[in-house]
Design a binder for these strands. Structure first.
Lengths: 155, 155
DNA sequence: TTTAATGCAAAAGATTTGCAACATG
DNA sequence: CATGTTGCAAATCTTTTGCATTAAA
């Protein structure tokens, strides 16, 4: 649940370095918000971060928490579980498969792999609970988005 | 993008079987909503399903789409990408790791595995775009939830 | 000081719910 | 025909935005 003290300190140092490098102001709020995510292993959502930060910083507002979390995400200091900024998506493919998801446009494609289907999970996972499904999520940038970002060679 | 005709038909048959078995009414709306998810490989969200179903069934309402998709999910006829009914969750752990997620309470725990870190993806994935990260998502029911569901031996 | 960041309040967006009308089994 | 399901409208919940004030560099 809790991240090791040493590790949290390292993350804080890295956080400060990146903010300075990017010329982004190192505010009290940003420190506390990042520290809160850095020190827990339970992957809180914005509301949970807000509630926890509030204990140390009673005047912080929820919209600052949102803005800060996305900023940290853009700076590569945090990531999101599941594909970010997306609504729930549904899948009628019940056979064992895996996903490639484009970070930019949300394009998603199934892929199959008998190799991946037989992955052995470490024992530590079994002790967490009963396993129902295992699948691989590949994040990247789809061909289309890669194309559209390339500087045009001619215009 | 499109699922094979034969496969769609199989899914429809299974859909009907399950609905009958569960004593759930087989309405026109439910058929069209399920068919729409069954026939595409792009994992639409509720709004997209709504827009597509509307073409065949102009009177369908968005709330029916939501109700139906969650019903189908509960019946095991569809699944969701990412953990269902959850808000975006943030993670400050930048080292390579994987997740166990409890389907019932959302409890999430990181785990590590050098084995998993070296998974070879099939070539077909490379052709989809540029890969940035690969990680394994294990879904299951955590110990706590398993406990709480067990019929009490004494009361 | 200068400019970016915050907090507030309000807007926008997404999802859910109560209920009368309706369709299915 | 009885009951579950739908569509509508309204409610609720979540996330974002505009703007005056405040604080960091």
């Amino acid at each position: 649940m809790k991240t090791e003290k040493r590790e949290v300190e390292e993350r804080m140092t890295h956080f400060e370095t990146v903010l300075r490098r990017e010329g982004v102001k190192l505010t009290h709020q940003r420190m506390e918000i990042f520290r809160e995510v850095a020190r827990t292993g339970d992957h809180p959502d914005a509301e949970q971060v807000f509630q926890r930060v509030r204990k140390h910083l009673p005047t912080v507002s929820l919209d600052t928490v949102y803005r800060t979390l996305w900023l940290l995400n853009d700076l590569g200091l945090v990531t999101t579980l599941g594909s970010s900024r997306e609504r729930t998506r549904f899948d009628a493919n019940l056979s064992s498969h895996h996903h490639f998801v484009c970070e930019q446009c949300g394009f998603t494609r199934d892929f199959y792999s008998t190799e991946l289907d037989k992955i052995q999970l470490p024992d530590s996972v079994d002790s967490l609970g009963e396993i129902e499904a295992t699948h691989v999520e590949v994040r990247g940038v789809c061909r289309n988005c890669v194309e559209n970002q390339k500087p045009k060679t001619q215009s």
